[in-house]
Design a protein around this nucleic acid. Structure first.
Lengths: 243, 243
DNA sequence: TTCCCCTTATGGTCTGACCAAAGTATGGTC
DNA sequence: GACCATACTTTGGTCAGACCATAAGGGGAA
């Protein structure tokens, strides 16, 4: 029975490598832009195979904290980066595809985020004047758009700029990833809608509320806008969490 | 100059494999529990090396849609799963460690989510009676907790149960991952606070609001509770987006 | 000085081999 | 015939070595 108590080795090698690298990042304070040792060198130092190192690096790349570049020079090798939105996009897209998340849940989340971001942006606007240049530019892009794809492109830019204006990078990343993951449905929705003037009015109303520093009006504007954009998901009369 | 127009192959092999697998999932309707072909077979069918297949599978595992198991039988091999919260936890933890996200941003996001979830849960409670069994169990666990770690464990369970009660799985996953990623700070905060009776009162107030179907009161209760839990981040007098 | 080529460091990929885990089949024993 | 131990087979996990592609840097020739 002694072997029943043998030390279980559940952690795979690449997970050990992963833990070591994370330790270096968190405890030793590695920063964005810092380079990791080369794959061969790392493998030798950790006494593991290069494939295990590679799998660990692949995980970090998937999570949006690492970027690999072949070649030579200061830009080559594995460099720490920060792309939480890319990682979140992949995550949402796959889980939507697997039907482990429904579109309704994602869009509900987006409404929550965007309303919150609009309130925050409007508060900032009231204090110091929000930087609404990106939102204005996106608005102009939408006016000039010739196709649903192009319209959605600038529409996405507008809403991401609104999230950026909230000043919270996690919110920004989630908004970007949601928009990216549901782009297909957004294009379909715009095509089904045909006329985009209602949407554009909604955007202008949101922008005006943010620039004039009116949080409550900004939240209402966002809610009304999304209700128009997704009539199937938000039927008239469905009261979302009242302001 | 003809070679200047040679087809650029920017996509790495494993990314191609990834795309093929994703296509099979999204277009061919593979579902949770379905098995992928073995690594060797997949490599042969796609005409790539096994290492490329493995790196693609590693990415899918990181994103929380795949789980690998060695051995033989119906449970072995690469099986489609759904663990968005595990993937999000890794993502948040690493980005916090990299300082590409600040704790303040994560906690702000949590407040937004939790307030929204409480409103939703209370609305459900008003309609059909929310299932608050898990929340009650967590409450009892906190009363009996003998250490900060243990308290935070049940505290986390309480707040995750609240998120679950919102009925939105994306919200649930984000809440779980946030709590997991900030567990360290939560334990420190509880230790610094010393007395947990204020927190427990807050929990009971939230639960009462949800069970009695009072959305506005639930939102206020959550806001007050988090203000007590993070006095450093939410100084008295800071008005969050007013209800 | 300028341009071209060679060197070199680095990631990307493939092959083949072996190990570990876990069910399945086989055969011996009672 | 029932039961249990052993060998086999499938499948992921790991390693080693080789080769290719990329991109910068160095050195030689015009």
């Amino acid at each position: 029975m002694a072997d029943k108590w043998a030390p279980v080795k559940r952690t795979r090698t690449f997970e050990e490598v992963l833990a070591r690298i994370e330790h270096r990042i968190v405890e030793d304070g590695m920063r964005i832009g810092d380079r990791l040792p080369g794959e061969r060198q790392l493998a030798e130092q950790l006494q593991v195979g290069r494939s295990s190192v590679r799998e660990a690096l692949r995980v970090l790349e998937t999570l949006g904290v690492l970027s690999s570049q072949a070649g030579r020079g200061p830009d080559a090798g594995a460099v720490l980066t920060s792309r939480p939105d890319a990682a979140l996009t992949d995550l949402l897209r796959l889980h939507l595809g697997l039907a482990s998340l429904e579109l309704r849940e994602v869009v509900d989340t987006r409404l929550m985020i965007e309303r919150w971001a609009a309130v925050r942006a409007a508060e900032t606007g009231a204090d110091t004047g929000a930087d609404t240049g990106a939102m204005r530019a996106a608005l102009a892009g939408m006016e000039a758009a010739g196709s649903a794809e192009e319209f959605v492109e600038h529409d996405t830019a507008f809403h991401c700029a609104l999230a950026d204006a909230s000043g919270n990078r996690l919110i920004s990343a989630i908004m970007r990833s949601i928009r990216e993951a549901v782009r297909r449905y957004a294009i379909e929705a715009v095509e089904a809608l045909g006329d985009t003037s209602v949407l554009q009015d909604g955007h202008r109303r949101i922008l005006a509320a943010v620039e004039s520093g009116a949080p409550d009006e900004a939240a209402r504007a966002v809610g009304d806008h999304l209700a128009h954009a997704y009539p199937a998901l938000f039927p008239p009369g469905s009261a979302e969490d009242p302001g």
